[in-house]
C-alpha cells in the first residue's frame, strides 16, 4: 500500500490537474486519503478553488453606473473600427 502515500508535492500537482481534467479513481482516492491527514494540502486545495471562484465572478462592472465611455473616446474608437473594416 506504500504507493497510496503521495507526497505533498505530488498531491498539489494532482489537485491542480483535477481542475483541468477528470482524474482516475486511483488519483482521486490518493488525494482524498492524503487530505484526510494533511491540513496544509487541505488549505492549498481550498485556496485554489477560492481563487477560481473569485476569477469566475469577476464581472462586476455595474457598481459604478455613473461612469460611461466619454463621447470623444466613443467617436475615436468607432473611427478606428470603421478603418479596420475597410
Amino acid at each position: 500500500m506504500r504507493h497510496w502515500l503521495f507526497s505533498c508535492k505530488k498531491i498539489t500537482a494532482l489537485i491542480s490537474l483535477s481542475m483541468d481534467k477528470e482524474l482516475s479513481l486511483y488519483q482521486r482516492m490518493g488525494i482524498r486519503f492524503h487530505l484526510m491527514m494533511c491540513v496544509l494540502c487541505r488549505r492549498y486545495r481550498k485556496q485554489l478553488f477560492f481563487i477560481r471562484s473569485i476569477l469566475d465572478h469577476d464581472d462586476s462592472a455595474d457598481d459604478q453606473p455613473c461612469k460611461i465611455l466619454p463621447d470623444d473616446a466613443h467617436r475615436r474608437i468607432k473611427k478606428k473600427l470603421d478603418e479596420e473594416q475597410e
Binding site: 464581472d59 462592472a61 455595474d62 457598481d63 459604478q64 453606473p65 461612469k67 460611461i68 465611455l69 466619454p70 473616446a73 466613443h74 475615436r76 474608437i77 478606428k80 473600427l81 479596420e84
Partner: peptide, 28 residues
C-alpha cells in the same frame, strides 16, 4: 457594451485614458 467594458476596465486600472485604450484594443 462600450460603457460596461469601460467601467470594468477603469475599476481595475484606475486610469480613464488607459481604460479607453483598453476598450479600443478589446474591440479591435
Amino acid at each position: 457594451y462600450g460603457d460596461a467594458l469601460y467601467r470594468f476596465a477603469i475599476i481595475r486600472v484606475q486610469d480613464s485614458f488607459a481604460a479607453e485604450d483598453l476598450v479600443q484594443e478589446t474591440l479591435l
